[in-house]
């Protein structure tokens, strides 16, 4: 077992595990027809968590390797400006629609998740970690740190929300007869952040751009709105 102790302590090993497992999960997802139920991120998370638990490896040890991938979330968030700029002309003519849809969507995301949570009598720490679930993880983590929930729980809940958004979107678009890629992308980005954006890019570049826009706007707005909403609801 000495070789295991040696390799398992190396950041390189966990970096490779993350990449390889994700590639496997992506292949599995393709083979199953791209169903969001087997979303590559969720499958990869499940496999890696199981592996870490079986080998009694701590999350801190794993993260020493995985942080190199995690780090890229920052520049990737900045990179969203590029598809936004590509469709800037169309976005400019629609700013009022986008702003109103974003504010109502973001507020209904926060209020509805808190109301259902309160109905189930969830403890305050869990409620506060649920509140920013529609916001992309780097922003959600920042918000939860500020309001006093559990940041890593929030990060996980954000991902589950993302997969649910992708899963529900075809049904909702069919139900409401949505044909416009801009509407599709915007609602995906607003409710399912980066997952929804990745999913929207598969629909079309226009959908992806509007999803990226919605993700950025929702993140910004939620960062300002959330503390107000939870204090109005008496949670902090």
């Amino acid at each position: 077992m000495e070789f295991w102790v040696y390799f398992a302590a190396k950041p390189l090993f966990w970096l490779i595990v993350t990449l390889a497992v994700f590639m496997f999960a992506t292949a599995l997802n393709k083979r199953s027809g791209g169903t969001p139920l087997l979303h590559p991120v969720l499958v990869a998370m499940a496999i890696i968590i199981t592996f870490l638990l079986l080998t009694k490896t701590s999350y801190e040890t794993y993260f020493e390797g995985a942080q190199f991938i995690h780090f890229l979330l920052g520049p990737a968030t900045v990179a969203l400006a590029v598809p936004l700029f590509d469709h800037f002309e169309r976005i400019k003519t629609m700013w009022l629609v986008l702003l109103v849809a974003c504010v109502t969507g973001a507020v209904s995301a926060i209020v509805s998740v808190l109301l259902v949570g309160l109905l189930f009598d969830l403890p305050t720490g869990v409620l506060l970690s649920l509140a920013p679930k529609s916001v992309t993880s780097p922003i959600a983590i920042g918000i939860v740190e500020k309001i006093g929930g559990f940041p890593s729980l929030a990060a996980g809940l954000v991902l589950i929300t993302g997969a649910m958004g992708c899963l529900l979107s075809p049904l909702i678009f069919k139900l409401l007869g949505v044909k416009d890629d801009a509407v599709k992308g915007f609602s995906l980005g607003l409710s399912a952040h980066g997952f929804g954006t990745a999913y929207a890019f598969e629909v079309s570049a226009v959908a992806g751009a509007f999803a990226g826009l919605a993700m950025g706007m929702t993140g910004l707005l939620t960062a300002f709105l959330l503390p107000v909403v939870i204090s109005l609801m008496g949670l902090i």
Partner: peptide, 11 residues
């Protein structure tokens, strides 16, 4: 999508 995995494992 890959970039979300490390944070997600934090669950």
């Amino acid at each position: 999508a890959l970039l979300y995995v490390p944070a997600g494992v934090g669950l």
